[in-house]
Amino acid sequence: MSSNQLTDSGQLRHFLTIEGLKQPLLTEIMDRAEQFSGITNRQVKKVPLLRGKTIFNLFFENSTRTRTTFELAAKRLSADVINLNINTSATSKGESLLDTLHNLEAMHSDMFVVRHSQSGAAEFIAQHVAPHVSVINAGDGCHAHPTQAMLDMFTIRRHKQHFPDLRVAIVGDILHSRVARSQIQALSTLGVGEIRVIGPKTILPADTQTLGVHVYHDMAAGLEGVDVVIMLRLQHERMQGALLPSAREYYDCFGLTDEKLKLAKPDAIVMHPGPINRGVEIASTVADGPQSVILEQVTHGIAIRMAVMSMTLGAQSEQQEVQA
């Protein structure tokens, strides 16, 4: 749990993890995203809310979807955005992470959006930034990916409304997935009726029971009667660790095909954080089928990131006014 992502008055100052956040705050993020989503239908697809703010996208790890939607969200709010691909810049010349940060602060930045392969990187940065800077975690190691979880909750709410009535299944590599971890925290905070995780024993964490989820090693049993199926990407690098025999065998057991999807409720939706591996964890006919909301998730990512950016920078403004 992060100790410093809220202001004294309980507002979001950084957005590092879902863990520890209360249900009304998660609902507020979704409500604000709902309000921002209408901006896309205008002739001028932006509002001047964050005009004059400078946001740095610090991606220490590759990403296309997440970085682009963060960039678009910032631009729709009229902020200035700088994208830094850190692999190819200062750190490769031997500069330390904190030195890089302090240099960016010296450029009067207001926000860092951080993606890093080390768990806890965003939290570490939040602890060391100047007080006027907000940090948003865009994925850290196997730890958390809170904006992805919130855009997923937003997508579920658009289709299903009432969380307590729902059964949600998350399928795949839960052990290495920051997305799954954040999703499970968000789903349980929002009071989802039943959360199931489905996967082979080797890629389910040993402590799944303590997460408050039901564990299934059989896809057919796990999908029975669910309202939402969330597929996770099978990360090829896991195969090398001998956790899984082969992509083919994984697909046979845990790939989502039309036949397996029939076991879920007829109006179940299929989600995936992307990038999808067709024929590895999901069949093309399902990914492109009528129950798939995978591309909607991408669109919703923009509104959710607009909500989180405006809320964190708004809380910063308020805090500075109180201290002034």
Binding site: Q35, L49, Q316, S317, E321
Partner: peptide, 15 residues
């Protein structure tokens, strides 16, 4: 709400 001139002073308005 998104066009106000006091965001940098008082932050987000209630929804």
């Amino acid at each position: 709400a998104y066009y106000r001139d006091d965001f940098t002073r008082i932050g987000m308005h209630p929804q």
